[in-house]
């Protein structure tokens, strides 16, 4: 029990601090890296409350895909982040209002235990009886088999769409020809000793 409590406070503290650093950092690359750290710690929190499937998804989807995408955007696009921050004071009141509303909603949710008197149609089984990965697996391929298949088709259409809209046949592209590479023999390879710091052409006579 005490281990869990310590783990909770460690994860929670690191998550909050790194989330603040995401916003406060001047260097956008650091921000993204702190975002990844936040995701990992939140995943840890999910594991603590027994939602191991969600924790895995968070790491795979958010760290594996979304954060990497952010990193690409930050590093590849020429965005002036100093300019982006300029309207900060002007938008502060609106941001504050949104923040206050969100905080009020959170307080209401915590304050009121039940929103209605409705009884759930299918009560969730206790976590001790079945892990949620198992529970999801049980219905995903049986009860929701149809939806699972159609989601697959939707992803296929998305992939087809991406290819149709962006793929272009280019002429004069130098493609890797594996057969030619494998076909090379010792005599066609020239080994040279390259001096450090002279570049690739340094050693070639």
């Amino acid at each position: 029990m005490i281990v869990e409590t310590i783990a909770f406070y460690v994860f929670a503290a690191v998550a909050v601090v790194s989330a603040l650093l995401v916003v406060g950092n001047r260097n956008p690359v650091y921000s993204v890296l702190f975002l990844i750290l936040t995701f990992f710690n939140v995943a840890g929190l999910f594991v603590l409350i027994g939602a191991e499937f969600l924790a895995m998804m968070l790491v795979i989807v958010y760290v594996g895909a979304v954060a990497v995408l952010f990193l690409f955007v930050v590093m590849m696009l020429d965005i002036n982040f100093v300019e982006l921050r300029q309207g900060f004071v002007r938008y502060l009141p609106i941001g504050a209002v949104v923040g206050v509303i969100l905080a009020a909603e959170l307080i209401f949710v915590v304050g009121s235990t039940a929103l209605g008197t409705a009884t759930p149609a299918a009560p969730t089984p206790a976590i001790a009886q079945v892990t949620n990965t198992e529970a999801l697996g049980n219905i995903m391929y049986t009860q929701y088999f149809y939806l699972f298949q159609v989601s697959g088709l939707i992803l296929l259409v998305a992939m087809m769409g991406a290819i149709v809209l962006t793929h272009r046949e280019r002429v004069g592209v130098r493609r890797q020809r594996i057969a030619d590479q494998v076909d090379r023999n010792r005599s066609s390879v020239q080994l040279t000793k390259v001096k450090t710091g002279d570049g690739a052409s340094g050693g070639v006579k």
């Binding site: 929701y144 149809y146 939806l147 159609v150 989601s151 088709l153 939707i154 259409v157 998305a158 087809m160 769409g161 149709v164 809209l165």
Partner: peptide
């Protein structure tokens, strides 16, 4: 409601692409 949504999304996604073909 879920099969309504997935069907609708399959249709719409394909239509977005053909509009821009």
């Amino acid at each position: 409601l879920i099969s309504l949504y997935v069907g609708l999304e399959l249709q719409s996604l394909a239509l977005y692409v053909v509009a821009a073909i």
